[in-house]
Design a binder for these strands. Sequence first.
DNA 1: CATGTAAATGTAATCGATTACATTTACGGG
DNA 2: CCCGTAAATGTAATCGATTACATTTACATG
Lengths: 329, 329
Amino acid sequence: MANIQQVASLAGVSVATVSRVVNGQITVSPKTRIKVEQAIKELNYEPSMLGRNLRTSESRILLVLIPTISNPFYLEIIRGIEDIAISQDYNILLCQTDTNPERENIYFNLVRKKMADGIISMDPAVNIETLVALSEHHAIIQCSEYTINSGIPFVSIDNEGASYRAVKHLIKLGHEKIALINTDEKYLYARQRQMGYQKALEEHGIPVDQGYIFHAQQIGLEYGQQAMKKILDMDEMPTAVFAVSDLLAIGALKEINSLGLKVPDDIALVGFDKIDFSNMTNPTLTTIAQPMYKMGTLAAKMLINKIKGERVESIILDHELVIRESTSG
Amino acid sequence: MANIQQVASLAGVSVATVSRVVNGQITVSPKTRIKVEQAIKELNYEPSMLGRNLRTSESRILLVLIPTISNPFYLEIIRGIEDIAISQDYNILLCQTDTNPERENIYFNLVRKKMADGIISMDPAVNIETLVALSEHHAIIQCSEYTINSGIPFVSIDNEGASYRAVKHLIKLGHEKIALINTDEKYLYARQRQMGYQKALEEHGIPVDQGYIFHAQQIGLEYGQQAMKKILDMDEMPTAVFAVSDLLAIGALKEINSLGLKVPDDIALVGFDKIDFSNMTNPTLTTIAQPMYKMGTLAAKMLINKIKGERVESIILDHELVIRESTSG
DNA sequence: CATGTAAATGTAATCGATTACATTTACGGG
DNA sequence: CCCGTAAATGTAATCGATTACATTTACATG
């Protein structure tokens, strides 16, 4: 493993010249450029990023904080981030916090220790105080889950509006007893989606029954199942269920199916995110589509601009209601 | 952002002493240790990994190569890798090649340029020549998909045996017309699983009909659907299907369901990997369980040992047949 | 041919740590 | 009080690049 010195001496030039060749600068004569390139080839030289990184004091690594990769919702976002990152010579460190503050802290430390140049946080459970404090000296963007007035730029969708549309769709189909499978209301998206749910009901003169609102501990198939188990145990069962995540909806669907009930005849079902599996279930799932790839690319661009020191504005993207079998015989 | 110099001068000691305090070495008197710690706190000092990494010429980053994170099969493996990595102060760079040689090369370059200390490759489509060449100077482990006699240590399962058991299970249930949804035979696991399939058939005197063997271009829900579409178009439809991946099986199931056929009555179905969703389908999927988390932890441990320069032996782990509704009314 | 200017190349400081080796300090025993 | 040894601390080289600034070279012009 040769270093720049050895290349320089083999080529009979200074390290500066080698560096200039490597970095493709113009001020090198063709003759020396060739000499240097030969030496590089001969020694199999690859510039060490460790040296370069120290000198330029950047790591060219972006940290992406997600609660867990088990939720396919993040897949396309990550793909978007990755595509932009790679095109700009960055790499991404994908960090699952698993809602574990210790893990989170390990990852925050990577930024503090300059092992990463910035953070895209998608973790709803992130410690927002720490994140804001970090954002004073480091480039940080929130994606999907965000915080109002934190000063941290974000890219997300109109959760309340999306939720409103989903529930309105159910109401138009004639449903009045509509349950909500939400997650913990400490998360902004959970509050916003619940707001949309309530707004739709109220607008149509349907009273909001707190007994119809369920809170899953987390997003996950099994939590959807659990919630649906409770719903199916109710005296006055709802005729429709809106889950704030496809994973919850798919878990719920599993529970409905295994009791022999029919979707949508016995119970209609709407999810959120349009993950790939939502089209594989039987019946297929009506859901809200988010522009996930786009969101990822934007988040990455915003972060890179922020790293460059530019001002960055937050963005709200459009969503879409995708009507499938679970709400339409 | 203070550096070690500033801490040293504020504490009135040399940088060496600060470094010793930071790295928790014994040869520092309690008095100076306290002085230094105060200075560190006062200046909000965080040691830069860039400096350290250059000096120790390691990046403490492990590169994990996977074809795509869309396949939940990798989730638990990644979790295993991550847990070990973090416990040993490493971080992982998760790299999706998307079967794109260009991407792959970008990632290989990270190792060449010392941005990563080693590679765990799980990509069946990896360029094995390049990987072997790299392994001469860099620590590399293969996980799940491997290469015989390449000199690269691996951790995997007995694909042929697992496949054999799955198909034998179908035969015992009385099936004789059993189709195989495989992937491209250029992958070792595909060949091994096909071998197991053939072995089971032959052992029971069932002739292997090449018309029953289908090749999906890739692993993915839609490819499973496509393959099943062809199968359902056959004159002499099989009574059972074994897919070499749960994703393929779930796609296939979707196709069967939407034609109104019943699993397992009309067609029995077996998948491979036991991903979470395989228990959410209707009916639930009989499948082969791989010890994915374990595989991940082992791969990580092997890689770290390899980085340390130790000799590392390959490992074959046990698998398990999980019988569920898709093969048993 | 001297000279000025631009192009090409070189010198050496620098990024921020670690660490071998050197030096100083502390302290117990004679 | 001196000395030897161990403990504590310091000095300075080093990792491998980048780059400001200095120097050399090339070449056109009068």
